[in-house]
Design a protein around this nucleic acid. Structure first.
Lengths: 210, 210
DNA sequence: GTCTATATTACGATAGAC
DNA sequence: GTCTATCGTAATATAGAC
């Protein structure tokens, strides 16, 4: 009964509106440039009222970051785990890249806000949400390890370096992506092709003079 | 004589100290979180004295961004142009990637400040420095066009998409790179291998079960 | 739960002495 | 060229009425 009482439901709904507004404005303007007044106005209340739901600006942004990381991580883990057990490395990586980009660019403001502001929040906030991000990084590391164990990945590759390079390729899309220009699926296809096979023509002689 | 007069030299030297301090602190803390007091203190003077050298915080950050973009752009253009005329596409792209990363991660604070804060400065500032960035993007676009004309790049590739994916791969390194962990040359080598040839083993059968 | 009112602090910027 | 002093504004956060 408690969980469904009208008061608690109203509180939860308002809290959600505040979080949604915060995610959107943090993504657009960055952390420091966003004021609690901006967020309150977008959520339809006064600045002071935010403090009923969150103790501080830092606690609010921490929750936004936590939600953003969790949404991407859960979506990608689920998509890869739902593949048939026989799925090869190429298939797994293709699905991981497509799902990561879809969560980042299409799903919600939380995911892009996360990537865009994580490097600009106060260090204490970053430290608090770091374990979540590390766990997601470890998922990718394990994905790459399994690929190398299968002989799918080039033997000499530095997997830790590859992981940050691949995730960098995908995450930086939140800096240049504008809805409507290119379908997210087309971006995912081009990124997957580059990461897996490179940009060179498959059988061409690559030493022609310019 | 004017250029070398003691007063002008002192002014230019102080202006340079202010710019250097600004680049470093903007890179570390972001644009909005950096105060003119932070910059003045690092440069060894008072906040009000900054206004002798720059009209506003926005004019100061604009100059930092301009220097950052120019340093990367000039370094990469020069390195590619200095290659022998017969150099093939693989060589050109390898040099472009290595030089871009070296300028970004090793050269100065201006280049990494540029990448880290460009998405967080006021829109009017971004608009003012945009032509410089577009010109550098056009250089890369032309590099890729020449690669496709040679048959070096996969025919179906979307060159505009490839350009932002490649530059994203490189630029995102300014978010995770820490001096001393990996030599910049090793990062460049891994990035070049991925972009050109992908991460898969060259001749392996890629369909093994996980 | 949300409000008005306000405390407190700190910012960007200007004035004017030196 | 750089300083001290200060203006005007706006931010986070708190107090207390409703």
């Amino acid at each position: 009964m408690n969980e469904a009482s009208p008061v608690l439901r109203k509180s939860a709904a308002t809290r959600q509106r505040v979080l949604d507004a915060a995610a959107r404005i943090f993504r657009e303007r960055g952390y420091a440039a966003t004021t609690l007044g901006d967020i309150a106005e977008a959520a339809g209340l006064r600045t002071a009222s935010l403090y009923y739901h969150f103790e501080s600006k830092e606690e609010l942004v921490e929750e936004v970051l936590r939600i953003g990381t969790t949404l991407v991580s859960d979506a990608v883990r689920r998509a890869v785990e739902d593949l048939p057990a026989e799925a090869d490395f190429r298939t797994r990586l293709t699905v991981a890249i497509a799902t990561h980009l879809d969560a980042l660019l299409r799903l919600t403001d939380y995911t892009s806000a996360d990537i865009r502001i994580i490097g600009h929040v106060p260090p204490e906030v970053r430290a608090k949400v770091w374990p979540l991000r590390e766990a997601y990084g470890e998922f990718w590391q394990e994905l790459l390890r399994s690929g190398r164990a299968n002989g799918a990945i080039r033997a000499g590759a530095d997997l830790g370096l590859l992981r940050v390079l691949i995730l960098g390729t995908l995450n930086y899309a939140s800096e240049w992506y504008k809805p409507g220009l290119k379908p997210v699926g087309a971006i995912a296809a081009e990124a997957t092709a580059m990461v897996l096979d490179g940009i060179l023509a498959p059988s061409a002689m690559h030493r022609q003079p310019a």
